[in-house]
């Protein structure tokens, strides 16, 4: 699979991603720093103290010098600067640590979304125009119409409140208790994050499967005497995945976006929670840092999707 052409393509894409990330980072940096009012103002510091702080963060320098220093920091050392609210906290290690937590939850959500979406989509397609199909297509509209925080609320009501009451607190989901990242803690937020997208994946898969099972090669597979499950999974689904793959880019973006809310609700100390918190705290430095991270993640995810195409569809070569 990894031909020379593909490797060259990957190289080019990585360079492109790096530039995009830098561009996004710069836009956010310049956009934010043009504005009056920042975290330092809000602390009601006065005179000398304030001057000292301004100086500490080089905020007393002209904007273009700040930008130059910021850019050199990012490019040469991967340094995203220092938190404005918590003096002395370096952003890069903070963001990287939080990234691992978010990535864990996100990966679960992604697997869950794709898995559930594919299964439901295939079932709806195979049972086309039966009640199973109607129920699934109708509930999928309901699924993607529910904001993730609503889903999270319902999950908490059931698993944290109702189940707790039912079992006298012996077994229930503890909201916001210390985050250990255990499976038991991950699957509720993952479900809330993924469910709306699972509906979309299911819809796409259904449409794509219906298209594929009319194809001649499915008839060929039947004529060979293959088992129906083999035909559906190996022959139909493989091909049906090709158009479904397109949704993966937006899906990753959706999960990143969703995590900003879901991590807050479930008390997950990840990137999303940091992002929302920093915005409320007006900690620009972290907002820029996290957003830069997000741009990089989206870039890498899109590259991953492109490579996935190569894996699924042998006709695609870069």
């Amino acid at each position: 699979m990894l031909t020379r052409g593909t490797l060259i393509y990957i190289g080019q894409r990585i360079v492109l991603i790096a530039f995009t990330v830098l561009a996004v980072s710069s836009i956010v940096f310049l956009g934010i720093h043009r504005l009056p009012g920042d975290a330092l103002f809000s602390e009601h510091l006065h005179g000398q103290q304030y001057e000292l702080l301004l100086h500490h963060y080089h905020l007393d320098e002209p904007l273009w010098i700040q930008y130059r220093d910021y850019l050199t920091g990012v490019v040469t050392r991967g340094d995203l600067g220092e938190s404005l609210v918590n003096k002395g906290v370096q952003i890069t290690p903070l963001v990287l640590r939080e990234l691992t937590i978010s990535a864990e939850v996100g990966a679960f959500a992604l697997i869950f979304t794709i898995g559930l979406g594919l299964v439901l989509g295939v079932v709806a397609a195979v049972r086309q125009n039966t009640w199973v199909d109607y129920v699934l297509t109708t509930t999928s509209v309901i699924g993607y119409s529910m904001p993730n925080f609503v889903i999270a609320t319902f999950l908490l009501l059931v698993f944290a409140v109702w189940l707790g009451n039912q079992t006298d607190g012996a077994f229930y989901y503890q909201i916001g208790g210390g985050w250990t990242g255990s499976i038991g803690q991950i699957w509720l937020p993952a479900f809330a994050l993924g469910f709306p997208y699972a509906s979309i994946v299911a819809r796409l898969t259904r449409a794509s499967m219906l298209e594929v099972i009319r194809q001649d090669y499915i008839r060929t597979a039947r004529a060979k005497g293959l088992k129906e499950t083999v035909i559906m999974v190996r022959h139909a689904l493989r091909n049906a995945l090709i158009p479904v793959t397109t949704i993966l880019g937006p899906l990753v973006i959706g999960i990143i976006t969703g995590s900003v809310i879901i991590e807050n609700i479930f008390g997950i100390p990840g990137l999303g929670k940091e992002f929302a918190q920093s915005i409320l705290n007006r900690d620009y430095a972290i907002v820029i840092g996290v957003f830069t991270m997000y741009a990089a993640m989206v870039g890498v995810a899109n590259l991953g999707v492109d490579l996935l195409y190569v894996l699924i569809d042998p006709r695609i070569r870069y």
């Binding site: 194809q215 001649d216 090669y217 060929t220 022959h235 493989r238």
Partner: peptide, 25 residues
């Protein structure tokens, strides 16, 4: 009938382009 298909009675079709699965060797 699945046992018969392809083993006792095989079938080939008009358009080999569309009758072969594009994603399998």
């Amino acid at each position: 009938i699945r046992q018969i298909r392809g083993r006792d009675i095989a079938m080939i079709f008009q358009d080999p382009q569309s009758s072969l699965n594009p994603v399998l060797t």
